[in-house]
Design a protein around this nucleic acid. Structure first.
Lengths: 204, 204
DNA sequence: GTCTATAGCCAGATAGAC
DNA sequence: GTCTATCTGGCTATAGAC
């Protein structure tokens, strides 16, 4: 029970740590709780990861590395701009609905520990905006869309897709909606958001 | 040095607690740090607020009660819909730029402690959507804007305005922009966002 | 590799003098 | 009201047996 079990335990730890850290953050998480969730004890947790900090960084780094490829998959594709926007809304909302803590987790921890920013800048892959930027400028020149800064369009695209999910507890409260009604609202956005953006930029 | 100083100390405590809690959250904040920032010691802090939890709830409740009136001020005004959207973008981005931690703080703590949701539902004032909803439906009927669910327009309005500020560390990293360039991008949004929305819904 | 037991520290809370 | 000193509990981390 050596090698294969080691893999097994390590995976159990990472999954447990991911669940706990992503929902409670670094400060709100307890090593004991992670150990319990992984079905082991604290000492073994420290045997695999010397410290809470090290374990946390493994989880954070992993979480962050999910984001960029997911963005690239669409931004960097060969689709027509309007289909790209439609595909992004449809896929990204599904993706984030499955990992609803991810964006807030990353934002919080980047803020809590700005040191991460430098670390990430060194090693990680970032989304490649060149194709997306070129495409937008090209569409503007051809008179297919009205002039807009690619960065602004990107901010709009992400904000419209992510924030209603990230901020769902707040929105539910403000709009006074129950879970089911709100979920339906989000489901509708898989098409709504794309149409909203396309209506805004497309020249008829 | 009784009454007047009590007010004074209590204010110093609340301001210090607000600053610490809103940037570090409940779990990441230390009573010692709040005491230091208020220029007093821990014992006095506990004299005014029996426990960390009580102090935190005072700060949270106060933070939340800033949000609704700020929304109402515009949603519930007598402005033309398009001016309302323009006014919202201009004012709300300024407001949030001054309190950048507020939305995330509220979202995180609502998630961390869902008990707050019930408490808030009991006592707090919420934004009044009736006027806004009626106005949208009226504009749709008159053929001034294309059909859109008022809730979706609300989500779009808030998301476009808030998320680029809430998620600034993430966006700076993804777009690889320095603080000054990003700040300029946000500044531009005070007019960009409104035009983006109006282009999307207005029938020419 | 995995466990039990415990060291050592840190933070919230209180006692009690002034 | 405000302070110094201290209690108490909980949490990270390690020692050491199996």
């Amino acid at each position: 029970m050596a090698e294969s079990n080691k893999e097994n335990t390590e995976n159990k730890i990472l999954n447990a740590a991911k669940a706990i850290f992503q929902s409670k953050g670094m400060d709100g998480s307890r090593m004991q709780e992670i150990a319990d969730k992984a079905g082991i004890n604290k000492a073994l947790l420290h045997y695999y990861y010397r410290s809470k900090q090290v374990l946390f960084e493994a989880v954070f780094s992993n979480a962050f590395s999910l984001i960029a490829p997911q963005l690239n998959k669409i931004l960097d594709s060969d689709l027509d701009l309007f289909d790209k926007i439609r595909g992004f809304a449809k896929n990204y909302i599904s993706f984030i609905s499955k990992h609803p803590y991810l964006p807030n987790f990353v934002i919080n921890e980047l803020h809590r520990n700005p040191g991460f920013i430098l670390k990430l800048k060194e090693k990680k892959e970032f989304p490649n905006f060149e194709k997306f930027t070129n495409q937008i400028n090209e569409y503007v020149e051809k008179g297919l869309i009205r002039p807009i800064a690619p960065e602004q369009l990107f901010l709009n695209l992400i904000s419209l897709n992510l924030f209603p999910i990230v901020g769902s507890p707040l929105f539910k409260l403000l709009l006074n909606l129950d879970d089911i009604t709100y979920k339906k609202l989000i489901e509708d956005r898989k098409t709504e958001v794309a149409e909203f953006i396309i209506h805004s930029i497309k020249i008829k």
